[in-house]
Amino acid sequence: MEAAPTPTLLLAPMEGLLDFVLRDVLTRVGGVDRCVCEFIRVTGSLLPDKVFYRFIPELRNGSRTLAGVPVRAQLLGSDPSSMADNAARLAELGAEGIDLNFGCPARTVNRHGGGAAMLREPERIAAVVAAVRRAVPAHLPVSAKMRLGYDDPGSAMQCALAMQDGGACEVVVHARTKADGYRPPAYWERIAPLRQALRVPVVANGEIWNLQDAQRCRALSGGDALMLGRGMVADPGLALAIRAADAGGQGEEAPVEVRWQALAPQLARFWHLVCKDLDPPQRAGRLKQWLNLLRRRHPQAQAAFDQVRVMTDQRAITLWLQQLVAAAATADGQAPADPAA
């Protein structure tokens, strides 16, 4: 008897938060099948290669994180021709696939007709998807991400069908409209009719913070495939917890591999990459941003956040992290990990 297929778990892109640095760290923790880079905005011209490499440096590594997890390039725009040109260039650079953003709620993006604004015109969505599908090799996946509508969830079905008819091989649905923004709740039950109507896989996204949320989302949306965003940042063990429950484990929210002591070396690696790849004014803020979210899942992150919150000197933060890693290694009876490894 063949084993049942493993449910798909994707890592969401989040501008200013879940970028290539955090992708590297979170995919090292494990449990994720595929990532998507933050949207690359296309405004009417072919972007230079350096822009693509800035958003998705994994292109230099076979379009995979250093842990070996595929990363799909994401484009945002409304002009079929320019979207196709940029998708074709990404294919030449070795992209794992092309993902199209029809869900961004940002005012600046929507004001120029991109992101969730496209949900008001399904025929334009179909034109963009079809143009990109024609522009890239047949073996290269073209997927799409949407919300339930701009301000009316009644348009969701038409938009999802437009993506499928244009040639998308997968549709990720963030279970809120543009007007809902990121306010809870996510309306997972509204994904179920889309899953029933579409021939291609539909992935549910939005407000999945823990294992219980994942299980409820699956039950209400009618399928197993999920995209994890802030919940995975707050609890890097979330995908592993879902995997453990799927395998018939105890359903614990966080396996032992991602206790706070095990996260300490990942924090150090994150800081190492931040200092290596980001501009100095961004560095301390990025570490504080992650610690702030980690407080939702790990009580120890509160004390860490309180200590780092007032720190701005890079050397002082590096020393503090070295001490944190050493203390965690002592607690586990191991030698401290090298963050550069």
Rank of each mutant, 00 (worst) to 15 (best):
residue 100 L to T: 08
residue 100 L to F: 10
residue 101 N to S: 10
residue 101 N to D: 05
residue 102 F to A: 02
residue 102 F to M: 00
residue 102 F to H: 05
residue 102 F to C: 03
residue 102 F to D: 02
residue 103 G to T: 02
residue 103 G to R: 01
residue 103 G to K: 01
residue 104 C to V: 11
residue 105 P to N: 14
residue 106 A to I: 06
residue 106 A to E: 11
residue 107 R to D: 13
residue 107 R to Y: 14
residue 108 T to L: 06
residue 108 T to H: 11
residue 110 N to P: 09
residue 110 N to K: 09
residue 110 N to D: 08
residue 111 R to L: 15
residue 111 R to K: 15
residue 112 H to W: 06
residue 112 H to G: 13
residue 113 G to D: 11
residue 114 G to E: 15
residue 114 G to K: 06
residue 114 G to P: 08
residue 114 G to I: 10
residue 115 G to A: 13
residue 115 G to I: 12
residue 115 G to L: 14
residue 116 A to F: 08
residue 117 A to W: 07
residue 117 A to N: 05
residue 117 A to H: 11
residue 118 M to I: 05
residue 119 L to E: 06
residue 119 L to F: 05
residue 120 R to M: 09
residue 120 R to G: 05
residue 121 E to H: 15
residue 121 E to W: 03
residue 121 E to G: 01
residue 123 E to V: 04
residue 123 E to Q: 14
residue 123 E to F: 02
residue 124 R to H: 11
residue 124 R to E: 12
residue 126 A to M: 04
residue 126 A to Q: 08
residue 127 A to N: 07
residue 127 A to D: 11
residue 128 V to E: 14
residue 128 V to K: 06
residue 129 V to C: 05
residue 130 A to C: 04
residue 131 A to V: 15
residue 131 A to F: 05
residue 131 A to I: 12
residue 133 R to V: 07
residue 134 R to L: 07
residue 134 R to G: 03
residue 134 R to W: 00
residue 136 V to W: 12
residue 136 V to C: 06
residue 137 P to R: 09
residue 137 P to N: 09
residue 137 P to K: 08
residue 141 P to I: 14
residue 141 P to C: 14
residue 141 P to A: 07
residue 144 A to V: 05
residue 145 K to R: 15
residue 145 K to D: 07
residue 146 M to G: 00
residue 146 M to D: 05
residue 146 M to E: 03
residue 147 R to W: 05
residue 147 R to N: 10
residue 149 G to M: 02
residue 150 Y to E: 11
residue 150 Y to T: 10
residue 150 Y to G: 14
residue 153 P to M: 04
residue 154 G to A: 15
residue 155 S to F: 09
residue 155 S to L: 03
residue 156 A to F: 04
residue 156 A to M: 00
residue 156 A to T: 08
residue 156 A to C: 00
residue 157 M to Q: 01
residue 157 M to E: 00
residue 158 Q to L: 01
residue 158 Q to G: 02
residue 159 C to F: 01
residue 159 C to L: 11
residue 161 L to V: 07
residue 162 A to D: 11
residue 163 M to I: 15
residue 163 M to R: 00
residue 164 Q to S: 13
residue 164 Q to D: 08
residue 166 G to P: 01
residue 167 G to R: 10
residue 167 G to W: 13
